Amino acid sequence: MASDGVVVEIGKVTGSVGTTVEIPVYFRGVPSKGIANCDFVFRYDPNVLEIIGIDPGDIIVDPNPTKSFDTAIYPDRKIIVFLFAEDSGTGAYAITKDGVFAKIRATVKSSAPGYITFDEVGGFADNDLVEQKVSFIDGGVNVGNATPTKGATPTNTATPTK
């Protein structure tokens, strides 16, 4: 695992066909100046998982989280898009600690492993708008004895992609 920078880890949970599971997305290594904004994309298989919603985690402190935390689910493109932009203008609602960034709610549709993997990152910046190093650890849903650990090695991303 990367020793510096922010680590975004997609949790690994267990479920069975027809059940709804909650998959946490963790941030670790949050910089001392916090995270003022970030955007990134995960990939998944809508034939295996139906993403039914995404909720902000406990490290989102904006009293009205829909102003700073936004997501979009595109089953036709097989992606989930995340956007966080601190909304106070003063840094008061920045992410300042490690913990759960988001909770992905999904219904298991198939007995195949439900991988959720890193696809791309736009950027991560602290309260001074300084770009942060970030790496990703894939996860998803274990169905029966299947284990979604494909790509469990962190993917280092030093520069934003478009």
Rank of each mutant, 00 (worst) to 15 (best):
Tyr115Leu: 08
Pro148Val: 04
Asp128Arg: 10
Asp55Glu: 12
Asp128Gly: 07
Thr96Asp: 08
Ile51Thr: 09
Ala72Gln: 00
Gly139Asn: 15
Val41Leu: 02
Pro113Ile: 02
Ile60Gly: 04
Thr155Tyr: 09
Ile60Leu: 11
Gly34Cys: 02
Ile52His: 07
Gly91Gln: 04
Gly53Lys: 09
Val17Met: 15
Val25Cys: 02
Val141Cys: 10
Gly91His: 03
Ile137Cys: 06
Phe84Tyr: 02
Ser88Val: 02
Ser110Trp: 11
Asp70Ile: 15
Phe124Trp: 01
Phe118Asn: 10
Gly122Phe: 00
Thr161Ile: 10
Asn47His: 07
Gly114Cys: 06
Ala112Pro: 07
Ile79Met: 12
Ile95Glu: 00
Asn37Trp: 00
Val143Pro: 12
Val61Asp: 04
Asp138Cys: 05
Asp4Lys: 04
Gly89Met: 03
Ile116Arg: 01
Ala152Val: 13
Thr71Ile: 05
Phe118Trp: 14
Thr19Leu: 10
Thr159Ile: 13
Glu22Ile: 04
Asp98Met: 07
Pro46Phe: 09
Phe84Asp: 03
Phe82Tyr: 15
Val41Thr: 01
Ile95Pro: 09
Ala102Asn: 13
Glu86Thr: 00
Ser68Met: 13
Ser32Gly: 10
Asp87Pro: 15
Asp87Asn: 14
Thr159Cys: 13
Phe118Gly: 06
Gly139Phe: 10
Phe118Glu: 06
Pro113Ser: 04
Pro75Lys: 03
Thr149Met: 06
Gly57Gln: 15
Gly53Asp: 06
Gly123Trp: 00
Gly57Tyr: 14
Phe40Ala: 03
Ser135Gln: 12
Glu120Val: 03
Pro56His: 08
Gly11Met: 04
Thr20Val: 09
Ala102Lys: 14
Asn64Gln: 15
Phe84Ala: 02
Phe82Val: 02
Val61Pro: 09
Asp4Asn: 08
Asp62Ala: 15
Val141Met: 13
Thr19Phe: 06
Pro75Thr: 03
Pro65Gly: 09
Asp119Cys: 05
Ala85Lys: 02
Gly57Lys: 14
Tyr26Val: 04
Ile116Pro: 01
Ala92Asn: 11
Cys38Ile: 00
Asp70Met: 15
Ser3Tyr: 07
Pro63Phe: 14
Lys67Leu: 08
Lys12Asp: 12
Asn47Tyr: 04
Lys103Met: 14
Lys162Glu: 03
Arg77Asn: 00
Pro75Met: 02
Gly29Ser: 08
Ile60Ser: 10
Val143Leu: 12
Val13Ser: 12
Gly114Phe: 07
Val48Asp: 06
Val81Ser: 00
Phe118Asp: 13
Pro154Asp: 14
Glu9Asp: 06
Glu120Leu: 01
Val141Asp: 12
Gly5Cys: 06
Gly123Tyr: 00
Ile137Val: 11
Gly57Pro: 11
Gly89Thr: 03
Phe101Leu: 06
Val141Pro: 13
Ile116Glu: 02
Ser32Cys: 01
Asp70Glu: 03
Pro63Arg: 12
Thr159Arg: 09
Gly5Tyr: 10
Thr20Lys: 14
Gly114Thr: 09
Val121Met: 06
Gly29Glu: 03
Val7Ile: 15
Pro65Val: 09
Ala102Arg: 14
Lys12Gly: 06
Ile95Met: 13
Phe69Cys: 02
Asn47Ile: 04
Thr90Arg: 15
Phe42Leu: 07
Thr149Gly: 12
Asp87Tyr: 15
Gly139Tyr: 13
Pro154Asn: 11
Ile52Glu: 12
Gly99His: 05
Arg28Cys: 15
Asn145Thr: 11
Asn64Arg: 07
Gly11Arg: 10
Ile52Asn: 06
Tyr44His: 05
Glu50Ile: 03
Ile54Asp: 06
Ser16Gln: 07
Ile59Arg: 14
Tyr26Asn: 14
Val41Asp: 01
Thr159Asp: 15
Ile116His: 06
Ala106Ser: 12
Phe40Leu: 02
Ile95Thr: 09
Asp4Cys: 02
Val30Gly: 05
Asp70Phe: 15
Tyr93Leu: 11
Lys150Leu: 13
Val41Met: 01
Asp87Thr: 15
Cys38His: 00
Tyr115Ile: 07
Thr66Asn: 06
Pro154Cys: 12
Met1Thr: 10
Val100His: 07
Gly91Tyr: 10
Arg105Trp: 05
Ile79Val: 05
Ala94Ile: 03
Lys33Ile: 15
Gly123Thr: 01
Ile51His: 06
Glu50Asp: 12
Phe136Ala: 13
Tyr44Pro: 02
Glu120Arg: 01
Val21Lys: 13
Lys78Phe: 02
Leu49Gly: 15
Ser16Glu: 15
Gly18Glu: 04
Ala36Pro: 02
Thr90Tyr: 15
Gly15Gln: 11
